[in-house]
Simulated scan of single mutants.
Amino acid sequence: MIPRQVYRTAIKQHRVLGFAGRRLQSNKASPKELALQSHLPKIENPDTPDRDINPKRKLPKPAYESENFKVPEWKRAFGELFINVFRIDMDNVRAGTMGGSKYYYMCKDQGLQFKDEPLSETAIFWYQTLGLPRTFGQWFQITGLHVWLLFVRMRAMPFKVGKNYQQKLVDKFFKDIELRLSEEMNILSGQIRESYMKDFHSQLLGITFSYDEALASNSDSVLAAALWRNVFNGDKNIDNVKLEALVRYVRMQLYILNKISDRAFGFGDFEFVAPNETIEPLTPQEEEKLREATRQKYEPQNGKILPSNRSSLSLDE
């Protein structure tokens, strides 16, 4: 992917910038390394709501979500012809395939956990390094944070396109929640599921508002307060080192999202920076290299662009 190829020179370095281009830290610790410096013992918070409805089994991903899934060549050729003849708006189509599929699963997988199963590397950061409870409600908060991060970038896209990406992302989020409540949590009552869904919808609105406030204020303290209230559930015993680590983690994601073009982001060329990595700002030369790599990938010099790769999204913004 374009961002990873170019940012690889900046990853595992020592400076972290926020979304305003302001230098935040000067040490070499990644969010995970910083959180591990916490020396306070874990103290259970009796005020934390018990929302632990651990899944009994995990749902398999649809075949088209599998990394090994390949479309037969004849179907691919027919699809290109169909797109060309009917002049289908591929930016609208990609809102579903990227915003409502790839990007949602990226958000979902960050803190995904199943009972009696080993944790992924990213889930280890959330549940072991930061010491968050392994509950469904906590998974929702982690996923909601990453959904908001993508919201920030989607809002910077042309209004109609960005709104479509956001809508597809939210639709998939809540469809997945309802499915998990029914199939994994064995909540068969439609009334109870509806009650949960309303609660999660209210929480997502609150998450978005609080993080937007932090974004608008350009203040680390406001961002830390929002993360403390939502991700850490207002735990008064939280170690500030862990809170600082999460602030650093969010700043890294926002910096990378700020540097990727609309075209590359719209085509799914974005990955979250892992908690065990750090970043430093790109030089002007590296930024130009990123733009050039984007142009070469999406607008080749021979001018032959498949109908499915057509887009009105900017290569530079």
Rank of each mutant, 00 (worst) to 15 (best):
Q5E: 13
R8S: 05
R8Y: 02
T9S: 09
I11Q: 11
K12P: 10
G21L: 00
Q37L: 08
S38Y: 05
T48G: 07
P49W: 03
D50A: 05
N54I: 14
P60V: 02
A63I: 11
E65D: 14
E65I: 15
E65F: 14
N68C: 08
P72V: 02
E73M: 11
R76T: 06
A77L: 14
F82E: 10
I83L: 12
I83S: 04
I88T: 02
I88Y: 02
V93S: 12
K102N: 11
Y103S: 07
Y105S: 06
K108S: 13
Q110S: 03
D116Y: 12
D116N: 14
P118Q: 10
P118G: 08
S120V: 05
L130V: 05
G131N: 10
L132S: 02
T135K: 11
Q138W: 05
W139E: 13
W139D: 08
Q141C: 10
L145E: 01
L145F: 04
L149T: 07
L150E: 01
F151D: 09
R153V: 01
P158Q: 07
K160C: 15
G162C: 06
K163R: 10
N164L: 13
Q166A: 05
F174W: 06
F174N: 06
K175T: 14
E178I: 08
E183D: 02
M185S: 00
I187D: 02
Q191R: 15
I192K: 14
S195L: 12
Y196I: 03
H201M: 15
I207S: 00
N218E: 12
L227S: 02
L227A: 04
F232G: 06
D235T: 08
K236S: 12
N240M: 13
A245F: 03
L246V: 02
L246Q: 03
L246R: 06
R248S: 13
V250L: 08
Q253F: 04
G266H: 03
E280C: 11
L282D: 06
E287L: 00
L290W: 13
K297A: 05
K304H: 09
N309P: 04
N309L: 07
S311I: 00
S314K: 04
